[in-house]
Amino acid sequence: MKQDLLEKLKLELERSTLSEKDKLDLVSVFSRFPEVEAKMLLELIGEDNDILHLLSDNLKLKRDINLDDKDSWKKVFDNEKEVLSSIN
């Protein structure tokens, strides 16, 4: 991701009410976003700061996935279905 986009994302994160650990976790992933997705992410956050909380929850679930456990996958799948149906 280009530095200017990353700086903007960091500013948005600083303004959020996420914990310091959650902010750092998101920066470590966001900094590796391809440019197109990074721009889209900034647009989304500009419209609605709650997106950061959704993505933070999503990231935590994915980091905790046990690849051998179907229930673990189901938690992620259910979370994403819930997010998308609430937004749609």
Binding site: V29, M40, L44, I51, N58, L59, I87
Partner: peptide, 17 residues
């Protein structure tokens, strides 16, 4: 909006899994 958020979640998946 939901499509864009799905795209973000897919990107997070690709980068975390």
């Amino acid at each position: 909006k939901a499509r864009k958020i799905l795209r973000m979640m897919v990107t997070v998946s690709a980068l975390t899994l």
